[in-house]
Simulated assay, not measured.
Amino acid sequence: MRAAYVSSLQPDAPLSGLTVGDLPFSAPDGWVPVTVRASSLNQHDIWSLRGVGLPADRLPMTLGCDAAGVTPDGDPVLVFPVVEDKADPRGYSLFSERHPGTLAEQVAAPRENLLTIPEGVPFAEAACLPTAWLTAYHMLVTRGRAADAGAVLVQGAGGGVATAAVALGVALGKRVYATSRDQWKRDRVAELGAIALEPGVRLPERVDVVIESVGEPTFEHSMKCAAPGARIVVCGATGGHLARIDLRRVFAMQLEILGSSMGTPAELAELLRLCATGQIRPVIDSTYPFDAIPDAFTRLSSGDVFGKVVIEH
């Protein structure tokens, strides 16, 4: 079976540990083999190549968390990327952490992890949903309680989660502010229906929900932009994890700082429904054939992406 996998851990040059080649395939008892039609890349894949959360004794490890494909019966399915894992302190792991990932011709998954793809939703768009879009949805709707919000701030728009949060916030009817250092990304954010701003700029109003994946460079700004009782929802810290927090503002404004990671199968099913009804459409930065996976990783690593990098089989 052809697969893209971690052959060696390279913290300082992660792409040098990426190999595309043949690996054996097997499906554990009760798991279903899925022929992959499309998958998408995540920053999680880069971290895996660096060895974060992936020790050397698990190599070679097939990369990838996201996949859409067909079962042996020909049913189109989307793979929910979270697997129960009692050995992990979180109680779960993602594909490519303990079980082979989705950047392969086939992936095996528990039957309960397979969601039917509605008619009219392309494999490439479905493959964008399981990690980035699911994370954004869980941050906004569940952790951030966006139903009670009027305005939302998304820091660092451009990457998969932040771009999904912008599109979802607009689809939910919220006033969405989004920051980016790059003018061309701000232009793209505006096309999605958000109010695009440079990082650190004063907003015309305080917001009820802040979507934070940048961390240290933006967190002070996120705090200042938060309305009384606002929720600052954090899913990552790509810019640094040691953010300074003025606790006086936290208690005086009664702010909630909430961690968030992934989501539930029901939330992923809702995302599929929103796609099928045309209320959202995943933002795809670029599409590559399977043989060009190294080029796709180079694209992801460049920092110049807007939306998801997709692999079509």
Results as ranks from 00 to 15, higher is better:
residue 2 R to H: 13
residue 6 V to K: 03
residue 8 S to E: 15
residue 9 L to T: 09
residue 13 A to S: 12
residue 21 G to C: 04
residue 21 G to E: 11
residue 21 G to W: 01
residue 22 D to V: 01
residue 23 L to T: 13
residue 25 F to T: 05
residue 28 P to H: 10
residue 29 D to H: 08
residue 32 V to T: 15
residue 34 V to S: 13
residue 36 V to E: 14
residue 39 S to H: 07
residue 40 S to Q: 14
residue 41 L to F: 15
residue 50 R to N: 10
residue 54 L to C: 13
residue 54 L to D: 13
residue 58 R to G: 12
residue 64 G to P: 08
residue 66 D to G: 10
residue 71 T to P: 11
residue 71 T to E: 13
residue 73 D to G: 12
residue 73 D to F: 01
residue 75 D to N: 05
residue 76 P to V: 04
residue 80 F to Y: 15
residue 83 V to E: 14
residue 85 D to L: 01
residue 86 K to E: 15
residue 88 D to Q: 02
residue 96 S to F: 09
residue 97 E to I: 03
residue 98 R to D: 10
residue 112 E to D: 15
residue 116 T to A: 15
residue 117 I to C: 10
residue 118 P to Y: 11
residue 119 E to N: 01
residue 130 P to N: 08
residue 134 L to A: 12
residue 137 Y to F: 14
residue 138 H to L: 02
residue 140 L to V: 04
residue 144 G to L: 07
residue 145 R to H: 15
residue 148 D to F: 12
residue 152 V to L: 13
residue 157 A to S: 06
residue 158 G to R: 01
residue 166 V to T: 00
residue 168 L to M: 02
residue 171 A to Q: 02
residue 178 A to L: 08
residue 179 T to C: 12
residue 190 A to N: 04
residue 196 A to K: 04
residue 197 L to T: 12
residue 199 P to G: 11
residue 201 V to P: 02
residue 202 R to D: 13
residue 203 L to D: 13
residue 204 P to C: 15
residue 207 V to S: 15
residue 209 V to S: 12
residue 210 V to T: 09
residue 211 I to Q: 09
residue 211 I to P: 04
residue 213 S to C: 10
residue 218 T to N: 08
residue 218 T to F: 11
residue 220 E to M: 08
residue 222 S to T: 05
residue 223 M to P: 05
residue 235 C to V: 03
residue 242 L to K: 06
residue 244 R to N: 10
residue 246 D to F: 01
residue 247 L to F: 14
residue 258 L to D: 06
residue 259 G to L: 08
residue 260 S to L: 02
residue 262 M to P: 00
residue 262 M to A: 10
residue 264 T to V: 08
residue 264 T to F: 14
residue 278 G to C: 06
residue 280 I to S: 04
residue 282 P to R: 04
residue 288 Y to F: 15
residue 295 D to N: 06
residue 296 A to Y: 10
residue 298 T to V: 02
residue 302 S to R: 01
residue 303 G to Q: 03
residue 304 D to N: 11
residue 306 F to D: 10
residue 306 F to I: 00
residue 311 I to V: 14
residue 312 E to F: 07
